[in-house]
Design a protein around this nucleic acid. Structure first.
Length: 765
DNA sequence: GCATGATGAGTTTTT
DNA sequence: CTCATCATGC
């Protein structure tokens, strides 16, 4: 135990050794949050307060879960496999497989990823003749997921107008369709588990008793349903009161747009009667100036639990600020600085270029490419999302659950086998008529279409029969051949990469089988013995089926089913780890949780960062500020901030003001590499624009600027104006001319507006 | 059923 | 500008 707690600071020690009661740990960036979580678990086990099976640790990403497992096995001499550490979705998947009958799901239920879900909804809209102009599939999907994320079923929603009534109706139809097909989407995994445990008292009590300690990572990212799920599982409101150990940082809450509710933190504090709010404020990552910048910036947010990071590392270097006159020269400057860093001995992988939106990466990528500097862009397609891999997966899905219509649609005519839209329409009609899946409806289709369809079914059946006794990797190989996917891509000119990806699936299967503890030769399909075993209920004293908590996965899921859930729940790397010694490029969102010695935060302009669409949302700018906070705190030693006066966006040149965040950063932490812009530099006074030549200053741009101003019928870009409703603002851009002239004006708190200059009443300041 | 051009949209992302 | 999606023609 001595070793366990040895290197902890006082705050961390207090958190790790808290008595068994609900606790909220406010863990600042770089404060050793994962360390506290894992040490807490190890300490609980080592002091005999709980057995490994009494632990439930929940994360959002597989990466975080894996990290915890790795660190734990380094701390404890026990097998971590018996411990329940995983993502919300992974844990729900496990629970639903085990209790699939109570949850009213087939044992081989399959998980729709976002692509699959969208195509399922498109199919639904078509089948019900819904006007997809009025109800776009994406919107319907957001509606359904939004409702599920709040724990709401269709029958619990009170529609406030006709459109919403229609959406609720579609939600119900969608759920019916999923149930018929034996598929669940991501949100459904959670909601179904929540409902299962709410409804089934013995089951709920079993797990409440089992999980004496529930620990949650990144608590600020939980949505309403996840919080309810945690409350239920912890036994909150029940006899025992519920004990939850939540770790999070309200200042790093950047996922409100996907349903995360920071309010869960204060709700938790209140509802769980948290007596111990522990703040981890000692930062082990960044130098002083960087931390100052982060602290001072985030202090501008109003809704905070309150926290201030400190470091022993000393001030370090100031934050370097660069004003470029275009996005191109911003990129050129990044290249220069990168070269200097590398020349001074920096490793390329310790240099990160961050941006607010993906579109910004292009220019920088291009510049890095031209300069011959290896780089790696995060956020491309993940392995299991690639088209060819999804195709192969669809064949596997059909072999495991032929009623998955999404899978059916994906490959029924891929590679092409003469089954066109017409045949599918006939098939769909038959399926609708009998209320069955497309696969099951095939025998009802006659004629030529029927023959080709029957051929497809025969292909799937044949593959299933032939692979009955095969191990998973072998099965995958056979399916790749028999589906003719390999042969198909062999004829394509760009098919080599795709074939390679498909081949990789065999090794992915091999790796999966060994990691999940299936026997190497275990048949991929669920054998009759295993089926019988899972069919035998394990009864508790009340004669109710409960989970054998440590039952190996193989008694609940066949290797094939497990592999398919793995493919949905863990999309894989976003690229082959190409060029590890490469400059890292990513959005600020993807940078969360990472750290680098040298960080560039680029495109710090009004409209971009903070993003203009954020000014319309409630608390939108506060979330952007948190995003900036996350970005700043990624840097260990050196931080660069940059912005550009002009930028190509959507094929148009835009003139952006520098980000308001510059005004919120402490001056003495900053070092301007270009002349510092006056606070209201557009206000007719002095501007860096008119001053001594900037690096790479471009006269053509200045001329364009001037002509823009003339076109605007008297108004100038950069002029300060006042508006009766929006208050004071600055003209950022002028489009059109004469009576059609419109000005884009930044009204600060009131946000960015585009006003018709012939209509709007503006006063010069 | 597939190649080609028109059209339109265009933050952030994990599971 | 650039990519994805849709409609049109062969």
């Amino acid at each position: 135990m001595q070793n366990l707690l040895h290197n902890l600071n006082d705050e961390q020690l207090a958190a790790v050794t808290l008595p068994s009661q609900s606790a909220l740990i406010l863990a600042g960036a770089g404060s050793g949050k994962t360390r506290v979580l894992t040490t807490r678990i190890a300490w609980l086990i080592q002091t005999g307060q709980v057995s490994p099976s009494g632990i439930l640790a929940v994360t959002f990403t597989n990466k975080a879960a894996k990290e915890m497992l790795t660190r734990l096995s380094a701390m404890l001499p026990i097998n971590t496999r018996g411990m329940w550490i995983g993502t919300f979705h992974g844990l729900c998947n496990r629970l639903l497989r085990t209790h699939h009958r109570d949850a009213a799901l087939p044992q081989t239920f399959q998980i729709l990823d976002t692509q699959d879900q969208l195509s399922a909804i498109k199919r639904l809209l078509k089948a019900n003749n819904v006007d997809d102009e009025k109800f776009p599939a994406k919107e319907v999907m957001y509606f359904i997921n939004g409702a599920k994320d709040q724990g709401l079923r269709a029958d619990k929603i009170d529609p406030y107008n006709a459109d919403e009534r229609k959406k609720v109706e579609l939600y119900q139809l969608y759920d019916d369709q999923c149930q018929r097909e034996g598929v669940v989407d991501f949100a459904e995994l959670l909601l179904r588990t929540y409902e299962l445990l709410s409804r089934n008292q013995p089951l709920r009590e079993h797990y409440q008793q089992r999980f004496q300690h529930i620990l949650v990572d990144e608590f600020q990212d939980t949505n309403d349903l996840q919080y309810k799920w945690l409350k239920l599982l912890s036994g909150h409101g029940g006899q025992q009161g519920g004990v939850l150990f939540a770790v999070g940082d309200d200042d790093q809450s950047i996922y409100a747009f996907r349903g995360a509710n920071v309010g869960n933190m204060s709700a938790f504090e209140r509802e769980f009667n948290v007596r111990n709010l522990i703040k981890l404020e000692q930062n082990y990552r960044s130098h002083g100036h960087i931390l100052d910048a982060a602290n001072v910036l985030i202090a501008n947010n109003s809704k905070r639990l309150g926290k201030n990071l400190r470091t022993d590392a000393g001030h370090g270097e100031q934050v370097r600020v660069y004003e470029a006159n275009s996005d191109l020269s911003e990129a050129a400057w990044i290249i220069e600085e990168t070269k200097n860093l590398i020349h001074d001995g920096a490793s390329r992988s310790e240099i990160a270029v961050l941006y607010r939106s993906n579109a910004q990466s292009r220019v920088i990528e291009h510049a890095l490419f031209s300069a011959g500097i290896p780089y790696h862009v995060y956020g491309g397609l993940r392995y299991f999302q690639r088209a060819e891999v999804k195709h192969a997966i669809a064949y596997l899905q059909l072999m495991d659950n032929p009623h998955n219509d999404s899978a059916f649609m994906r490959v029924v005519n891929f590679p092409a086998r003469g089954i066109g839209v017409r045949s599918i329409e006939t098939l769909q009609a038959a399926a609708d008529q009998y209320g069955i899946s497309l696969y099951a409806a095939v025998p009802y289709v006659t004629g030529k279409a029927g023959t080709s369809l029957a051929g497809f079914v025969k292909l799937v059946e044949g593959a299933r029969f032939e692979t009955q006794q095969m191990a998973l990797p072998e099965l995958v190989r056979v399916v790749l051949e028999q589906s003719t996917l390999l042969a198909h891509y062999a004829t394509e000119k760009e098919g080599a990469d795709r074939i390679e990806n498909l081949e990789q699936m065999v090794s992915a299967a091999t790796q999966f089988v060994s990691e999940e503890g299936y026997g190497q030769g275990a048949p991929a399909h669920l054998g009759p013995q295993a089926q019988a075993a899972s069919g035998d209920a394990i009864l508790n004293a009340d004669g109710v089926e409960i989970l054998d908590a440590d039952a190996p996965l193989s008694t609940v899921m066949s290797p094939l089913s497990a592999f398919l859930s793995h493919a949905s729940l863990e999309a894989g790397d976003n690229q082959a780890t190409a060029g590890q010694e490469a400059v890292q490029m990513m959005t600020v969102h993807s940078a969360k949780g990472l750290e680098f010695n040298n960080v560039f935060i680029t495109g710090l302009e009004e409209g971009l960062f903070p993003h203009e669409s954020s000014s319309r949302e409630h608390d939108g700018v506060e979330e952007e500020r948190r995003l900036m906070y996350v970005a700043i705190t990624r840097a260990r030693q050196r931080l660069y901030l940059s912005f550009a006066q002009t930028r190509m966006l959507h094929g148009q040149t835009r003139y952006n003001m520098k980000s308001r965040f510059f005004d919120e950063l402490p001056e003495d932490a900053l070092k301007w590499l270009t002349p510092k812009v006056q606070p209201n530099w557009f206000g007719g006074r002095k501007s860096a624009w008119d001053e001594a030549p900037l690096v790479g200053s471009d006269n053509a741009i200045a001329q364009k600027f001037a002509s823009k101003a003339i076109a605007g019928s008297g108004w100038r870009i950069g002029e300060s104006v006042a508006h009766a409703k929006f208050g004071e603002g600055v003209i950022v851009n002028i489009e059109g001319s004469g009576n059609n002239a419109r000005a884009q004006i930044n009204f600060g708190a009131a946000g960015m507006k585009v006003l018709d200059l012939s209509v709007a009443k503006l006063d010069r300041l």
